[in-house]
Design a protein around this nucleic acid. Structure first.
Lengths: 205, 205
DNA sequence: TAGATTGTTAATCGATTAACAATC
DNA sequence: TAGATTGTTAATCGATTAACAATC
């Protein structure tokens, strides 16, 4: 184990390894090599070995990595060896799609609170959860001790909601609004913006 | 203008500048500086100047950048000074959310074809578009000359559909399935996977 | 054992930053 | 003009790759 600060860029690759390894495990595979994993995710074998070795010696010369062991270790490192409660703010189309998404639970997350500021939506159910009013959001998130939120409100409301989330003690925001959020350095933001992602590719067309 | 190959990492930042500039324009601002833009997007002023200067001299010493001029130039560079027709494959919750998303058109994209392999969904309408059967997809995409697709099918079907998209001549895929796609080097893939994005943040919690 | 593959080192490559002359 | 800010250079910093001893 290396006690020094691990670069962000390495942390960013671990979930990709995790996803590929999970898929290998689902297929019944027991071991893999840096070579094989690299082919799956499009990253060089040397880099994968280097990334993984930042955290310990998880492989065996000659045979590679035990998939289930490496999965355990990566989950532990990324702290997804548990289920994180998540708040969802914004019950529009995207919010609904996320609320119904089946893929969260077996990857460490569970949406437990849903908010919207539209009185017409408040009280409505999505799955087992009732949409609550944004006015009670700070209090509700605090009392639930929630640290992670997904933001699917319009751009015009996003910064204001983000400020409230920060106030409520949220430390990680998955932002679907097409706007750069201003938050304290202690709060992590990841941005999902389909148009931006598409624009990264048109240059090459 | 620099004729050399522009690094991928720079191309990836341009859509972020574009989004921030668009927002400034919407607010009625006329000019900005690398300093100001940098504060909005969380990138150093020096880097922004360096990135932009790869493509020409778009600023003025002393006054900075004309927002509308820089917007035009960035759109031109990224080839979003036009509207790209896009195919959407997979009419589940996420597909529906994307089909109804209002944010594409003014950023260069328009969904014009929607496919699903579920016979029960085929024929159904989303907005003005009818969901078509995947069996006719290759042909329909070819005849429409579509180069961009969004993939919102389950992981189990994603690779197969991706292969068909490649066959149909698609050169850019926005992949929502939680699986690394295997495509030829001439085809660009961008991955949107909310669980992966969340896992990038839990490490820091 | 022989073959395979790790973990790690050193070398290379590329990206970011600091600084400043040019100039609006 | 004086102040501001660009575009660019050189220096620094960091990430990736190649290579190989260690070892399963």
């Amino acid at each position: 184990m290396n006690a020094e600060k691990i670069p962000d860029i390495i942390i960013g690759r671990l979930p990709i390894y995790l996803r590929a390894l999970q898929r290998m495990a689902d297929k019944g595979m027991k071991t893999t090599s840096s070579q094989e994993l690299g082919e799956h995710v499009g990253i060089s074998a040397a880099q994968i070995r280097k990334d993984i070795s930042q955290f310990g010696e998880f492989g065996k010369q000659g045979t590679g990595y035990s998939i289930s062991y490496l999965l355990d270790k990566l989950r532990e490192i990324l702290k997804v060896d548990r289920i994180w409660d998540v708040a969802l703010v914004g019950a529009g189309d995207m919010g609904h799609a996320l609320a119904r998404y089946q893929g969260f639970v077996n990857r460490g997350f569970c949406i437990v609170l849903i908010f919207d500021n539209d009185k017409a939506k408040v009280g409505e159910k999505i799955g087992n959860f009732v949409i609550e009013d944004t006015s009670t959001m700070i209090e509700r998130i605090k009392e639930a001790g929630i640290k992670i939120a997904m933001l699917t409100v319009p751009a015009s409301a996003a910064q204001e909601v983000a400020d409230k989330l920060v106030q409520a003690g949220v430390k990680a925001i998955l932002n679907y609004a097409p706007i750069s959020l201003n938050v304290p350095g202690s709060v992590k933001v990841q941005h999902i913006d389909p148009a931006t992602h598409l624009q990264r590719m048109t240059y090459y067309l």
